[in-house]
Design a protein around this nucleic acid. Structure first.
Length: 429
RNA sequence: GGAGGAGUGGCCGAGAGGUCGAAGGCGCUCGCCUGCUAAGCGAGUGUACGGGCUAAAACCCGUACCGCGGGUUCGAAUCCCGCCUCCUCCGCCA
């Protein structure tokens, strides 16, 4: 959520910055609602003041035994109360309306974000490694996985439906190994605190991180409950400190969490229909930071490095893309995507997305900290990034480490997590 | 699922229709004292919103906030109703 005061003070600037996202937002409407709100508020408050004074008078009159006078005044105040009630109803309607409009307003892109209208405006800022040299026509991972007997799309379709997969044997083991490898790296080397949160959250949490109210159709909701399956660990983890006042001395806070993620993928019909790239359920290790505003952009760079290191250790070629204003997520002020090379599909596939939300989520979730000097509480800045998406990492390993005989080498760092296994080989049927 | 109990400031904890933003304590800030530290002494210390003043603050005024939402009343932290959360006991269960 944006700061209403900022909108009030620099409406033209806010409008201009938001418009770089490629659409117009109802800034004027918000301003006018704000104006109405303040006018009503002043009326309501002065009426309340009057009522308070008179009620106190009634109290003291009664103490003096002047009941008749008291009753007369009470009649008067009663009318006042009725008038107040109408005005209050009006006020709360305006406030709800204003609040709703604010919840639908996206974050302002940071000044360093390239301006562009869609993903064609994104800028490659970094490359690491090289695509592997494969002396034969590389296969896409779904073929490799099915040939190895470790991925089964048909049976997943039977038990659930499309966009689900069953992992068997070394496939399941690989998934589990990756989770442990990534968590260990982030906990032991990068200093994150491990957390295993609920995979189901309430509406308030989703409003806090801004999946709601605007993106309801992307979520799975539990029937008969006001609960949702999490689309990312960002939701439960960022909401850990909702409505809290942290101490500056305790910042920054770094969390890492493994969770499955559930996404309806509404609006993605026909995209990535084959393979494990786009599933309704996938595993992910997430990184979340709570930091003081002054450091959040440095923290973003470091978050990105922490995620990149996973790919470096796995020996997977990737590039880093700075998202442009038109491609930026709703809540984000700045985002880097990490895209891993997928030789079987001859394209780069997003495997991590690292964002600084500044105080956008903090404002929604009321995430604050008390400065060291004891001053007023301020909003923290929140950041998060995938470190990494597990399914897509499996995809990348299968495609990058495939051998001509159909087997797949296991990256060395993972072998200790897989009982020393060096290679996945096709089972002789 | 059944029966009870509880939710008050950064934290702990009193208050049980009127002058209560709320005693007291802890913590914190400033000052005093003191070889240093600790202790001690004194003062201060909630948040949000709106208004005034201002370059902006500080400051001043007002309103709201005692888990959340309604209601009763001239007036609600206090009474009533609904919900949420936590605790205890019983039952069930991975």
């Amino acid at each position: 959520m944006l700061d209403l005061k900022l909108i009030r003070e620099k409406p033209e600037w806010v409008k201009a910055r938001l418009s770089t996202r490629g659409q117009d937002f109802p800034v004027e409407e918000i301003l006018s609602l704000d104006q109405q709100r303040r006018e009503l508020l002043q009326k309501v408050e002065s009426l309340r003041h009057l009522r308070k004074e008179k009620s106190e008078q009634i109290g003291s009159l009664k103490k003096q035994g002047k009941d008749e006078e008291a009753n007369f005044l009470a009649q008067e105040v009663k009318k006042l109360g009725e008038e107040l009630k109408t005005l209050e109803a009006e006020l709360s309607q305006v406030e709800n309306n204003l609040q709703e409009k604010l919840l639908y307003l996206p974050n302002i892109p940071h000044e360093t974000v390239p301006v562009g209208k869609d993903d064609s405006g994104n800028v490659v800022v970094k490359r690491w490694g090289e695509p592997p040299e494969i002396g034969f026509e590389p296969k896409p991972h779904w073929e490799i996985g099915e040939n190895l007997g470790i991925l089964d799309f048909e049976r997943a379709g039977k038990i659930t439906g499309s966009r689900f997969v069953v992992y068997f044997n070394e496939g399941a083991l690989l998934e589990r190994a990756l989770i442990n490898f990534m968590l260990d790296l982030h906990v032991k080397k990068h200093g994150y605190k491990e957390v295993l949160p609920p995979f189901i959250v309430n509406e308030t949490s989703l409003i806090g991180t801004a999946q709601l109210p605007k993106f309801k159709e992307d979520l799975f909701k539990l029937e008969g409950w006001n609960y949702y399956l999490i689309p990312t660990a960002e939701v439960p983890v960022t909401n850990l400190h909702r409505d809290e006042i942290l101490r500056e001395e305790d910042l920054p806070l770094y969390y890492t969490a493994y969770t499955p993620c559930f996404r309806s993928e509404a609006g993605s019909h026909g995209r990535d229909t084959r393979g494990i790239v786009r599933q309704h359920q996938f595993n992910k290790v997430e990184l979340v930071k709570f930091v003081v505003p002054e450091t959040s952009y440095d923290e973003l760079e470091n978050l990105l490095l922490d995620a990149e290191e996973v790919l470096q250790l796995l020996g997977l070629h990737y590039r880093v893309v700075a998202l442009c204003t038109g491609d930026l997520g709703f809540a984000s002020a700045k985002t880097y995507d990490i895209e891993v090379w997928a030789p079987g599909q001859k394209r780069y596939v997003e495997i991590s997305s690292c964002s600084n939300f500044e105080d956008f989520q903090a404002r929604r979730a009321n995430l604050r900290y008390r400065p060291k000097d004891g001053g007023k509480p301020r909003f923290v800045h929140t950041l998060n990034g995938s470190g990494l998406a597990i399914g897509r990492t499996v995809m990348a390993i299968l495609e990058n480490y495939q051998q001509e005989d159909g087997s797949v080498l296991i990256p060395e760092v993972l072998r200790p997590y897989m009982g020393g296994l060096e290679k996945i080989t096709p089972k002789k049927a």
